Amino acid sequence: MAKFKVEFDGFDEMVARLSKIGGSAKKTTEKALKATHSIITKEAEKAIKPHRRTGATERSLIKKAEIEWGGLIAEVEIGFDIDNGGLPSIFLMYGTPRIKKDQKLYNAFKGKKTLDKVHEVQEEIFFSAIRDAER
């Protein structure tokens, strides 16, 4: 399980601008985190399918985006619930001395293509919120 935040170049400036024009930075952040969760979860669902034996690891994928706020910082948990059948996902993602790592599963969470897509979507959500607030 991993925690993701909203992170892209110029994020602080966008939040300040959005707040200045009366937009909701909190709502926009939550929307961006839910989009992040959706993108990564879809990629992980595709990548874990070839490893199905009992289905326990696949079922442990966190499918509901729950936003956690700690002061001014929001996070969303993404990935597999380790305590409820998700432990094998770690061995699949990173490999073991006997098992080669699954690059597709690894890339679903940490791959450049996935992270670039996440940052692009997060940024677009904030641009859209600013445009809507300016109207």
Results as ranks from 00 to 15, higher is better:
E30R: 05
E30T: 09
G85N: 01
W69A: 10
R59P: 03
T96F: 12
F91E: 09
A35D: 02
D132V: 06
G86N: 01
T41P: 00
E66S: 09
A2Y: 13
A47I: 07
R17F: 07
F11D: 03
K26M: 02
K64C: 00
E124N: 14
S38N: 09
Y94Q: 12
F8L: 07
K5D: 10
A74D: 08
R17D: 10
T41V: 13
K112P: 01
K26L: 04
A74M: 09
V15I: 10
E66Q: 13
H51E: 11
V118P: 04
R131L: 10
A47E: 06
V6M: 12
N107K: 10
E43R: 14
G85S: 01
T57Y: 09
D116H: 05
I39Q: 02
E66V: 14
P50V: 12
S60E: 02
P88V: 11
K42L: 05
A16Q: 08
F8Q: 11
E58C: 05
G70F: 13
H51P: 08
M1W: 04
G95E: 03
G111V: 09
D81R: 07
R17S: 06
P50W: 10
E7A: 15
F91K: 07
E134L: 15
A35M: 03
A47M: 11
D102E: 11
L87A: 15
F8A: 10
T36I: 03
E120I: 01
L105P: 06
G79Q: 02
E124Y: 06
A32R: 02
